[in-house]
Write a protein that binds this DNA or RNA. Sequence first.
DNA 1: TAGGCCATCTGGTCCT
DNA 2: AGGACCAGATGGCCTA
Length: 252
Amino acid sequence: MDSDAGSSCSRSSSPDIVVDDSAGSFFSNKMFHPYLQDHRDAGKSEGKVKGSSELNKEENQDLRLKVNSRERKRMHDLNQAMDGLREVMPYAQGPSVRKLSKISTLLLARNYILMLSSSLEEMKKLVGDVYGGSAAVQPRAPAHPVMASTTPGAHLSLHPLAPSLHSLVGSTPLSLQHHSSQTATAAAPASHSPSHSSSFLSFHPSVQGLLKDSLHMNHHSFRHFPGMPCPCSLCQPLPTTTSTLSSLALNK
DNA sequence: TAGGCCATCTGGTCCT
DNA sequence: AGGACCAGATGGCCTA
């Protein structure tokens, strides 16, 4: 029912409401106690006068309940979509990990999309360079470090945006984690222009502050420290083929 | 205990 | 008219 109910979130802030238009199920919830109290009080103040106004009141109450129910359903659908988005985002998901807030999910998704788009563009360029030049055709490499992480054992170089995105995310999917022998700072900057990453992370200052607060609150997640190796998937290096292609492209 | 996050209620607005 | 969408208000839960 609640979007939290089926998740691994340790917290369930939503009261267990049965979404049902029948009055009984609604009134069983504590959220309606004030509402009911108000209506009871209103009834008292009116005394025993009953008539069309009373009927209108009941009609309005039914209408209000219906509207509330619809609104609740709408918000539940919205939360389901939000959960769906969280599922595909590169952050730690597990029983011991607090789930991303809504605002964090949206901001992270935006940056994730931008990063993937950039990776795609870069791959297109590289592939174009390879097929246009004399370089030997290498096996296709995953376009993104997250995908690269699914090919353990590959010799990898770090995606330049990984640290930046990681700093926003604060964590990554457990299912994607594996260790890299390289440091986070070792391979990052070489093959990419700085303007690249800065454009991705060019949040409005207020949003940056928001990200600091909301995305770095996860104490169970990986954190980036200068010069320290990071096991997260976003820091997973790109395959050799990609870095090789990248260096080839830059040397032209 | 304060602050963050969330679910829900509610009234307003817009659209069909 | 009815439904969808939105934003403000309110109160609960959780964490630092």
